[in-house]
Amino acid sequence: MMHERKLISLSHGAGGKEMGELLRELIISKVKMSGFEEGIGLEDMDDSSTIPLGDIHVTVTTDSYTVNPVFFPGGDIGKLAVTGTINDLAVMGARPLAIVDAMVVEEGFPMDDLKRIVSSMIHTAEGEGVALIGGDFKVMPRKSLDKIIITTSGIGIVSREALITDSGLRPGDKIIVTGTIGEHGATILALQSGIDVGGTSLRSDCASIVEAMKIALELGGVHAAKDPTRGGLAMALNEMARKSKVMIVLEEEKIPIRDEVRMYCEMLGIDPLYLACEGRAVIGASSEVADDIVQKLNKAGYKDATVIGEVRKGREGYVLLRTVVGGIRIVEPPTGELVPRIC
Protein backbone atom coordinates (compact mmCIF):
# COMPACT_ATOMS: atom_id res chain seq x y z
CA MET A 1 0.00 0.00 0.00
CA MET A 2 1.70 3.21 -1.11
CA HIS A 3 2.54 5.52 1.75
CA GLU A 4 -0.39 7.88 2.27
CA ARG A 5 -0.20 11.15 4.21
CA LYS A 6 -2.34 10.88 7.35
CA LEU A 7 -5.22 13.38 7.30
CA ILE A 8 -7.45 14.97 9.91
CA SER A 9 -10.92 13.40 9.96
CA LEU A 10 -14.22 14.50 11.50
CA SER A 11 -13.84 11.90 14.26
CA HIS A 12 -10.64 13.67 15.41
CA GLY A 13 -12.89 16.55 16.47
CA ALA A 14 -15.85 14.59 17.84
CA GLY A 15 -14.74 14.68 21.47
CA GLY A 16 -14.08 10.95 21.71
CA LYS A 17 -11.10 8.62 21.88
CA GLU A 18 -9.55 9.70 18.58
CA MET A 19 -9.50 13.34 19.73
CA GLY A 20 -7.87 12.42 23.05
CA GLU A 21 -5.19 10.37 21.28
CA LEU A 22 -4.51 13.13 18.74
CA LEU A 23 -4.13 15.86 21.38
CA ARG A 24 -1.84 13.73 23.54
CA GLU A 25 0.36 12.77 20.55
CA LEU A 26 0.30 16.16 18.75
CA ILE A 27 0.48 18.69 21.59
CA ILE A 28 0.53 17.48 25.17
CA SER A 29 3.55 15.20 24.78
CA LYS A 30 5.47 17.98 22.98
CA VAL A 31 4.85 20.94 25.34
CA LYS A 32 7.46 21.31 28.10
CA MET A 33 6.10 24.34 29.95
CA SER A 34 2.55 23.07 30.27
CA GLY A 35 1.53 24.49 33.66
CA PHE A 36 2.09 27.45 36.00
CA GLU A 37 3.53 26.34 39.30
CA GLU A 38 1.08 23.91 40.91
CA GLY A 39 -1.85 25.18 38.89
CA ILE A 40 -3.95 22.93 36.65
CA GLY A 41 -2.16 22.66 33.28
CA LEU A 42 -2.33 21.27 29.77
CA GLU A 43 -1.91 17.58 30.56
CA ASP A 44 -4.74 17.62 33.09
CA MET A 45 -7.12 18.38 30.18
CA ASP A 46 -9.63 19.65 32.73
CA ASP A 47 -12.50 22.00 31.77
CA SER A 48 -10.31 25.00 32.81
CA SER A 49 -6.67 25.55 33.63
CA THR A 50 -5.54 27.60 36.65
CA ILE A 51 -2.87 30.10 37.69
CA PRO A 52 -2.30 30.05 41.48
CA LEU A 53 -1.89 33.60 42.95
CA GLY A 54 -1.66 33.98 46.70
CA ASP A 55 -4.59 32.14 48.25
CA ILE A 56 -6.71 32.04 45.05
CA HIS A 57 -6.59 30.34 41.66
CA VAL A 58 -7.30 32.33 38.50
CA THR A 59 -9.16 29.88 36.24
CA VAL A 60 -8.76 30.23 32.47
CA THR A 61 -10.47 28.42 29.60
CA THR A 62 -11.10 28.79 25.88
CA ASP A 63 -13.55 27.14 23.46
CA SER A 64 -14.58 27.64 19.85
CA TYR A 65 -18.16 27.30 18.69
CA THR A 66 -19.04 26.04 15.22
CA VAL A 67 -22.61 24.80 15.82
CA ASN A 68 -24.65 24.32 12.66
CA PRO A 69 -27.43 25.48 12.36
CA VAL A 70 -26.52 28.81 13.97
CA PHE A 71 -30.03 29.37 15.38
CA PHE A 72 -31.83 26.44 17.07
CA PRO A 73 -34.71 25.94 19.54
CA GLY A 74 -33.34 26.82 22.99
CA GLY A 75 -30.52 29.09 21.86
CA ASP A 76 -28.07 30.22 19.22
CA ILE A 77 -24.31 30.29 18.65
CA GLY A 78 -24.05 33.63 20.52
CA LYS A 79 -25.69 32.37 23.71
CA LEU A 80 -23.77 29.07 23.47
CA ALA A 81 -20.46 30.93 23.05
CA VAL A 82 -21.01 32.51 26.50
CA THR A 83 -22.64 29.66 28.47
CA GLY A 84 -20.22 27.03 27.10
CA THR A 85 -17.22 28.97 28.39
CA ILE A 86 -18.58 30.16 31.76
CA ASN A 87 -19.80 26.59 32.45
CA ASP A 88 -16.20 25.38 32.01
CA LEU A 89 -15.23 27.89 34.72
CA ALA A 90 -18.19 27.05 36.99
CA VAL A 91 -17.35 23.32 37.21
CA MET A 92 -13.98 24.32 38.76
CA GLY A 93 -15.94 25.97 41.58
CA ALA A 94 -14.92 29.34 40.13
CA ARG A 95 -16.96 32.56 39.81
CA PRO A 96 -16.76 33.68 36.15
CA LEU A 97 -15.51 37.29 35.96
CA ALA A 98 -14.96 38.14 32.30
CA ILE A 99 -14.83 36.81 28.76
CA VAL A 100 -13.10 37.88 25.54
CA ASP A 101 -14.32 36.58 22.20
CA ALA A 102 -12.95 36.30 18.65
CA MET A 103 -15.42 36.13 15.76
CA VAL A 104 -14.70 35.00 12.21
CA VAL A 105 -17.57 35.60 9.81
CA GLU A 106 -18.02 34.45 6.22
CA GLU A 107 -18.34 37.15 3.54
CA GLY A 108 -22.04 37.42 2.66
CA PHE A 109 -23.32 36.44 6.09
CA PRO A 110 -26.56 38.44 6.73
CA MET A 111 -25.99 41.53 8.96
CA ASP A 112 -29.25 41.13 10.89
CA ASP A 113 -28.34 37.53 11.80
CA LEU A 114 -25.01 38.83 13.12
CA LYS A 115 -26.84 41.51 15.13
CA ARG A 116 -29.10 38.83 16.64
CA ILE A 117 -26.09 36.68 17.60
CA VAL A 118 -24.12 39.53 19.19
CA SER A 119 -27.08 40.83 21.18
CA SER A 120 -27.73 37.28 22.39
CA MET A 121 -24.10 37.07 23.55
CA ILE A 122 -24.28 40.42 25.39
CA HIS A 123 -27.65 39.59 26.95
CA THR A 124 -26.40 36.19 28.19
CA ALA A 125 -23.10 37.55 29.61
CA GLU A 126 -24.78 40.44 31.41
CA GLY A 127 -27.48 38.13 32.72
CA GLU A 128 -24.71 36.16 34.44
CA GLY A 129 -22.87 39.27 35.66
CA VAL A 130 -19.90 38.48 33.40
CA ALA A 131 -18.03 41.36 31.71
CA LEU A 132 -17.22 41.24 28.00
CA ILE A 133 -13.84 43.00 28.13
CA GLY A 134 -12.34 42.47 24.70
CA GLY A 135 -12.31 40.55 21.45
CA ASP A 136 -11.42 40.34 17.78
CA PHE A 137 -13.44 40.40 14.57
CA LYS A 138 -12.49 39.10 11.12
CA VAL A 139 -14.29 38.44 7.81
CA MET A 140 -13.14 35.69 5.44
CA PRO A 141 -13.93 35.21 1.75
CA ARG A 142 -17.14 33.37 0.84
CA LYS A 143 -16.91 29.53 1.09
CA SER A 144 -13.68 29.60 3.12
CA LEU A 145 -15.71 28.85 6.27
CA ASP A 146 -19.27 27.81 7.05
CA LYS A 147 -21.04 31.09 8.10
CA ILE A 148 -19.45 31.93 11.47
CA ILE A 149 -17.04 30.65 14.16
CA ILE A 150 -16.87 32.21 17.64
CA THR A 151 -14.01 31.51 20.04
CA THR A 152 -14.60 32.61 23.62
CA SER A 153 -12.00 32.67 26.40
CA GLY A 154 -13.10 33.09 30.02
CA ILE A 155 -11.48 34.04 33.32
CA GLY A 156 -12.73 33.26 36.84
CA ILE A 157 -11.44 33.06 40.39
CA VAL A 158 -11.72 30.46 43.12
CA SER A 159 -10.10 30.16 46.53
CA ARG A 160 -7.41 27.52 46.86
CA GLU A 161 -9.47 25.25 49.07
CA ALA A 162 -12.67 25.62 47.04
CA LEU A 163 -11.01 24.55 43.76
CA ILE A 164 -12.73 21.48 42.19
CA THR A 165 -11.18 19.30 39.47
CA ASP A 166 -12.61 16.44 37.37
CA SER A 167 -10.18 13.95 38.95
CA GLY A 168 -11.19 14.08 42.61
CA LEU A 169 -13.78 11.27 42.77
CA ARG A 170 -13.47 8.91 45.76
CA PRO A 171 -14.98 5.42 46.28
CA GLY A 172 -18.37 5.83 47.99
CA ASP A 173 -19.14 9.17 46.30
CA LYS A 174 -22.46 9.57 44.51
CA ILE A 175 -22.78 10.83 40.90
CA ILE A 176 -25.32 13.62 40.44
CA VAL A 177 -26.53 15.12 37.16
CA THR A 178 -28.32 18.48 37.31
CA GLY A 179 -30.98 17.78 34.65
CA THR A 180 -32.20 15.68 31.69
CA ILE A 181 -29.44 14.59 29.27
CA GLY A 182 -28.92 14.64 25.50
CA GLU A 183 -31.18 17.63 24.83
CA HIS A 184 -28.69 19.77 22.84
CA GLY A 185 -27.16 16.84 20.93
CA ALA A 186 -30.57 15.44 19.94
CA THR A 187 -31.87 18.84 18.81
CA ILE A 188 -28.86 19.65 16.63
CA LEU A 189 -28.67 16.13 15.12
CA ALA A 190 -32.40 16.26 14.32
CA LEU A 191 -31.99 19.61 12.55
CA GLN A 192 -28.93 18.36 10.64
CA SER A 193 -30.78 15.23 9.46
CA GLY A 194 -33.60 17.32 8.11
CA ILE A 195 -36.22 16.50 10.74
CA ASP A 196 -38.76 19.29 11.31
CA VAL A 197 -38.09 20.04 14.98
CA GLY A 198 -40.78 22.74 15.05
CA GLY A 199 -43.60 20.32 15.79
CA THR A 200 -41.69 18.67 18.60
CA SER A 201 -40.57 19.66 22.11
CA LEU A 202 -36.91 19.05 21.13
CA ARG A 203 -34.90 22.06 22.28
CA SER A 204 -31.31 22.62 23.37
CA ASP A 205 -30.64 22.80 27.13
CA CYS A 206 -28.13 25.60 26.36
CA ALA A 207 -27.91 27.50 29.68
CA SER A 208 -25.53 28.60 32.42
CA ILE A 209 -24.81 26.14 35.27
CA VAL A 210 -23.12 28.79 37.44
CA GLU A 211 -26.08 28.98 39.85
CA ALA A 212 -26.51 25.18 39.98
CA MET A 213 -22.80 24.76 40.87
CA LYS A 214 -23.09 27.47 43.55
CA ILE A 215 -26.01 25.62 45.18
CA ALA A 216 -24.16 22.27 44.99
CA LEU A 217 -20.99 23.74 46.55
CA GLU A 218 -22.73 25.46 49.47
CA LEU A 219 -22.92 22.23 51.53
CA GLY A 220 -19.34 21.14 50.88
CA GLY A 221 -18.51 17.50 50.15
CA VAL A 222 -18.25 17.99 46.34
CA HIS A 223 -15.10 16.17 45.19
CA ALA A 224 -15.32 16.52 41.38
CA ALA A 225 -17.38 18.15 38.61
CA LYS A 226 -17.47 18.35 34.82
CA ASP A 227 -19.81 19.66 32.11
CA PRO A 228 -20.79 16.86 29.69
CA THR A 229 -20.64 18.66 26.31
CA ARG A 230 -19.13 16.94 23.25
CA GLY A 231 -19.30 13.13 23.75
CA GLY A 232 -22.09 13.55 26.29
CA LEU A 233 -22.39 11.89 29.71
CA ALA A 234 -20.41 8.86 28.45
CA MET A 235 -17.33 10.97 27.66
CA ALA A 236 -17.51 13.07 30.83
CA LEU A 237 -17.88 10.06 33.18
CA ASN A 238 -15.16 8.05 31.43
CA GLU A 239 -12.80 11.01 31.81
CA MET A 240 -13.66 11.43 35.49
CA ALA A 241 -13.29 7.67 36.17
CA ARG A 242 -9.97 7.46 34.31
CA LYS A 243 -8.44 10.53 35.99
CA SER A 244 -9.76 9.69 39.46
CA LYS A 245 -8.62 6.05 39.01
CA VAL A 246 -11.99 4.75 40.18
CA MET A 247 -14.90 2.74 38.76
CA ILE A 248 -18.35 4.29 38.29
CA VAL A 249 -21.56 2.20 38.37
CA LEU A 250 -24.67 3.89 36.96
CA GLU A 251 -28.33 2.88 37.32
CA GLU A 252 -30.03 3.23 33.90
CA GLU A 253 -33.46 3.74 35.50
CA LYS A 254 -32.19 6.81 37.38
CA ILE A 255 -30.67 8.62 34.37
CA PRO A 256 -33.11 11.44 33.50
CA ILE A 257 -33.91 11.42 29.77
CA ARG A 258 -37.07 13.01 28.41
CA ASP A 259 -39.29 10.52 26.53
CA GLU A 260 -39.06 12.55 23.33
CA VAL A 261 -35.24 12.48 23.37
CA ARG A 262 -35.30 8.74 24.16
CA MET A 263 -37.71 8.01 21.31
CA TYR A 264 -35.68 10.14 18.92
CA CYS A 265 -32.50 8.18 19.82
CA GLU A 266 -34.29 4.86 19.31
CA MET A 267 -35.55 6.03 15.94
CA LEU A 268 -32.01 6.75 14.75
CA GLY A 269 -30.31 3.94 16.68
CA ILE A 270 -28.18 6.30 18.78
CA ASP A 271 -27.37 5.96 22.52
CA PRO A 272 -28.48 9.14 24.39
CA LEU A 273 -25.48 8.83 26.75
CA TYR A 274 -23.33 10.04 23.84
CA LEU A 275 -25.35 13.19 22.98
CA ALA A 276 -24.03 16.58 24.11
CA CYS A 277 -25.59 18.51 27.00
CA GLU A 278 -24.98 22.29 27.04
CA GLY A 279 -26.59 23.26 30.35
CA ARG A 280 -25.86 20.39 32.72
CA ALA A 281 -23.20 19.58 35.31
CA VAL A 282 -22.04 16.14 36.44
CA ILE A 283 -21.04 16.28 40.10
CA GLY A 284 -19.28 13.71 42.31
CA ALA A 285 -20.16 14.29 45.97
CA SER A 286 -19.77 12.37 49.24
CA SER A 287 -22.70 10.09 50.08
CA GLU A 288 -23.44 12.12 53.26
CA VAL A 289 -24.36 15.30 51.33
CA ALA A 290 -25.43 13.95 47.91
CA ASP A 291 -29.14 13.66 48.73
CA ASP A 292 -29.21 17.11 50.37
CA ILE A 293 -27.55 18.62 47.29
CA VAL A 294 -30.19 17.02 45.05
CA GLN A 295 -33.01 18.31 47.27
CA LYS A 296 -31.59 21.85 47.28
CA LEU A 297 -31.23 21.75 43.48
CA ASN A 298 -34.78 20.44 43.06
CA LYS A 299 -36.13 23.21 45.32
CA ALA A 300 -34.18 25.82 43.33
CA GLY A 301 -35.96 24.71 40.14
CA TYR A 302 -33.58 22.00 38.82
CA LYS A 303 -36.44 19.51 39.08
CA ASP A 304 -34.69 16.68 37.20
CA ALA A 305 -31.45 16.86 39.20
CA THR A 306 -30.88 13.40 40.70
CA VAL A 307 -28.32 10.79 41.80
CA ILE A 308 -27.61 8.47 38.83
CA GLY A 309 -24.89 6.24 40.24
CA GLU A 310 -22.00 5.77 42.61
CA VAL A 311 -18.21 5.53 42.65
CA ARG A 312 -16.52 2.27 43.63
CA LYS A 313 -13.05 0.77 43.97
CA GLY A 314 -12.48 -1.89 41.28
CA ARG A 315 -11.39 -1.73 37.65
CA GLU A 316 -9.96 1.81 37.33
CA GLY A 317 -11.35 3.95 34.57
CA TYR A 318 -14.40 1.80 33.80
CA VAL A 319 -17.96 3.11 33.71
CA LEU A 320 -20.59 0.38 34.17
CA LEU A 321 -24.34 0.62 33.80
CA ARG A 322 -26.99 -1.56 35.46
CA THR A 323 -29.73 -1.71 32.81
CA VAL A 324 -33.48 -1.46 33.41
CA VAL A 325 -33.76 -5.28 33.23
CA GLY A 326 -30.95 -5.80 35.74
CA GLY A 327 -28.13 -6.65 33.35
CA ILE A 328 -24.72 -4.97 33.41
CA ARG A 329 -22.94 -3.29 30.49
CA ILE A 330 -19.82 -1.18 29.97
CA VAL A 331 -20.26 2.43 28.89
CA GLU A 332 -17.32 3.04 26.54
CA PRO A 333 -16.04 6.51 25.63
CA PRO A 334 -17.44 7.51 22.22
CA THR A 335 -15.54 6.78 19.02
CA GLY A 336 -16.04 8.14 15.49
CA GLU A 337 -18.89 10.41 14.53
CA LEU A 338 -22.47 9.83 15.58
CA VAL A 339 -24.39 8.57 12.54
CA PRO A 340 -27.86 6.98 12.34
CA ARG A 341 -27.94 3.22 11.72
CA ILE A 342 -30.46 0.90 10.04
CA CYS A 343 -29.46 -2.35 11.68
Binding site: M247, V249, G269, G314, R315, Y318, L320, I328, R329, I330, E332, R341, C343
Partner: peptide, 24 residues
Protein backbone atom coordinates in the same frame (compact mmCIF):
# COMPACT_ATOMS: atom_id res chain seq x y z
CA UNK B 1 -16.32 -1.59 12.68
CA UNK B 2 -20.01 -2.03 12.16
CA UNK B 3 -22.11 -0.86 15.09
CA UNK B 4 -23.97 -4.18 14.66
CA UNK B 5 -20.79 -6.24 14.47
CA UNK B 6 -20.26 -8.69 17.33
CA UNK B 7 -16.74 -7.46 18.16
CA UNK B 8 -17.82 -3.79 18.14
CA UNK B 9 -20.72 -4.52 20.47
CA UNK B 10 -18.56 -6.64 22.79
CA UNK B 11 -15.92 -3.89 22.82
CA UNK B 12 -18.52 -1.20 23.44
CA UNK B 13 -20.88 -2.88 25.87
CA UNK B 14 -18.59 -5.64 27.14
CA UNK B 15 -18.91 -9.33 26.63
CA UNK B 16 -19.56 -11.62 29.60
CA UNK B 17 -15.87 -12.40 30.12
CA UNK B 18 -15.02 -8.75 30.63
CA UNK B 19 -17.81 -8.42 33.15
CA UNK B 20 -16.86 -11.41 35.25
CA UNK B 21 -13.73 -9.56 36.26
CA UNK B 22 -15.83 -6.92 38.01
CA UNK B 23 -16.70 -8.00 41.56
CA UNK B 24 -19.99 -6.19 41.61
Amino acid sequence: VSSEGTCHIWAKYGGRLLLEKFEL
